[in-house]
Design a protein around this nucleic acid. Structure first.
Lengths: 219, 219, 219, 219
DNA sequence: TATGAATGAGTCTTCATTCAT
DNA sequence: AATGAATGAAGACTCATTCAT
């Protein structure tokens, strides 16, 4: 599940093996990039193995040298997505001058990331529901979960600092905020927000304002 | 039964016709129930015509005597769902003694309904995105939208009363609350909430408290 | 196969039976008319039993009280069509003042009939090819053939008179002319004539001119 | 075989690729042959994807590796047919010593070709009517039309030479002749000619005689 | 006589996956 | 490692026909 990082072997690998492994990882990365592209363009339904393979310059059969299953590709995409999201949040947090700004920035970054990558939300929520006939392995699911927790930790830290909260309380606020943001994104992506004549950005700001006010008042 | 007399269209239908119509509606309802069951068990993807037909004790072809299209079945499920939701909300509103209680009750009812019917949320959000290649008819989409708006109106009324809001402001608060609730449900249904060690009910209550406090303070 | 003519019984039928039979024939005629209408509007492929039944105000099952098979309906349509064509030809022949005019008129009538009823040509040629897995009964096929011969006899008479031909020679010329006319119709109906920038009417006239000139010169 | 060297697009293809392409073409040809066989045996309606696939020794899905669509197969059959017809006509024209003989030979070749391939006429006329709900692409239709025109040009040339006609007049005569020949074929293929006790060959000869006589007299 | 519910065999088409090469 | 041919199971949908009522 962490295909980009070569496992640190206890005994150093022979050079040829290393080279091969590196080459393999490189090609796998290309495949993944192709999958992401296809996925972003055509969504869950359109992301067929054939389409991904072609985008990557392969034939369908070749894909199975790198991934056992279509779901495995999805999982890898999601994994990458969570990494990217983590990076985006950390950057947002780092760039913000004060506690209040940081809290706002982090929340907005969470929204902005999925706004730019709407399909990733689909993946995250609708592919890996755990009850799927052919879902992910437990290991995979757990790993993705851990990754999500790590990501949200960035938010929690920002909120904890702002409100002087315990990490437990900050966690609760973070989850609540995440729910809100994902809810807004869901409504937006499915066109309901337009139907209801509301703007996603305003809803997010509104929520941020309230949250920041509430937490700011505590300290 | 006067079989030789053509029914004059103004007078009530002959008994036989009525009976037949009733029988047909009954079977159609059975089909719908089967569809709902299949749907709840296997999700959007698993709800194939074949599966629905078999669940209802039919062959696939028979389904088309009742619904022209797979989407039509979905639409009917969603339509029924929205009706039921509307009823639930109105009951909740009616049963509540005061403004504050009513606001809380309505929000909770919205949450509770979809908690009991998780797949209906999928339907609502993922089938009728409006941008699907072969989605619903425009008419159907509009009808369902109108229905959703009508349902949310019950919430808006409750919030307006509580906070002395204009209907426009109440609408905005309603949409925000809906986003929150749907976000919580999304996280819960996909198992994320358990992973993150949070309880949906608490999140909803938390939000309600805040909202009620905020609106209650205004009046 | 001659559903419009009640068989002359040796012993007179009881009145009730007669009435019933007449009623039945009447309804069967309605069905046939509906079939013709559907057929003319939607062509071979579109003429489903359901469509025919609905057009006639029946349900699909009812059709089978009058026709054993879809093909039987087709046969009946074709039979009627041949009758109508015969009538048209005889009228054309009767109305024409001289031999030359009559020959021309009859040929033109043949063309004009199928121009007005293009689907009947389809029926005549493409349904009853004799090699079909489920075609017509031998009897039916023979009857239709006899009918066609009778129709062409009108043409043959006209040509015989004009050219002073034996009936055998006239028959050959008739068949040749029929081939030509059907060929033109085929090309026209399938859009080839437009593609090739020719006009059906001119082609027919051209052929008539030549034929009349040739035969007229003999006598 | 130099598998590590990417083929530079200008230089000739590597042998392996060529071989594969040839193999593919071979199988595609096999599929086409199967389609033609099925088509000849069972006609338009009987030529289902399943039947074609089975005849070729494939499963239905495999067909789609070679043809995107059922119509595409039809189009290919027709295309091949038109090529073969063109060849036949050119050969007939080339082999004939004088103008008169050539005109006769070409007309007869047109007849003879479709006599040997009766189903190709069906295809030509009944599949590509241009008004079908889901017919061919415009491009394909146009291409096939152009091909038909090119084929008929061979006939037109022969007639023009014989009669000293302008190409426009020759074209008209060609279309007229084609109508006649197709009409005869239609009557023959559907068994009407036998019923009417006529011989296709004689009809064609008769028409040729007349035409040749008429045109020959002009020059 | 007519209904209308239901069947069953069929239509084209898609696609993840396998496997010999 | 990669190909690409092929499978097999599935998808939605159609329709002539049957049959209990």
């Amino acid at each position: 599940m962490m295909p980009n990082v070569a496992p640190s072997p206890v005994v150093p690998e022979p050079a040829a093996s290393l080279r091969r492994r590196a080459a393999r990882d490189f090609r796998r990365a290309g495949l993944l990039a192709a999958a992401q592209k296809v996925f972003a363009r055509f969504g869950l339904d359109g992301a067929t193995i054939r389409a991904i393979a072609l985008e990557a310059g392969y034939t369908p059969g070749a894909v199975y040298a790198y991934y056992d299953t279509k779901e495995a590709i999805y999982a890898d995409i999601l994994s990458q997505s969570l990494s990217a999201l983590g990076r985006a949040l950390r950057e947002a947090a780092a760039a913000a001058p004060g506690d209040e700004t940081r809290a706002r920035a982090v929340l907005h970054a969470l929204y902005a990331y999925y706004r730019r990558h709407p399909q990733d939300l689909d993946l995250g929520f609708y592919l890996f529901q755990g009850m799927r006939p052919v879902g992910l392995t437990r290991d995979l699911d757990r790993e993705l979960n851990d990754r999500l927790i790590a990501v949200l930790l960035v938010v929690a830290h920002a909120l904890a600092r702002l409100g002087g909260l315990t990490m437990l309380d900050a966690h609760r606020e973070t989850v609540a905020a995440a729910c809100h943001i994902f809810g807004v994104l869901l409504m937006e992506n499915t066109g309901r927000l337009k139907t209801l004549d509301c703007q996603a950005g305003e809803l997010i700001d509104h929520y941020s304002d309230q949250l920041v006010a509430r937490l700011g008042a505590r300290s």
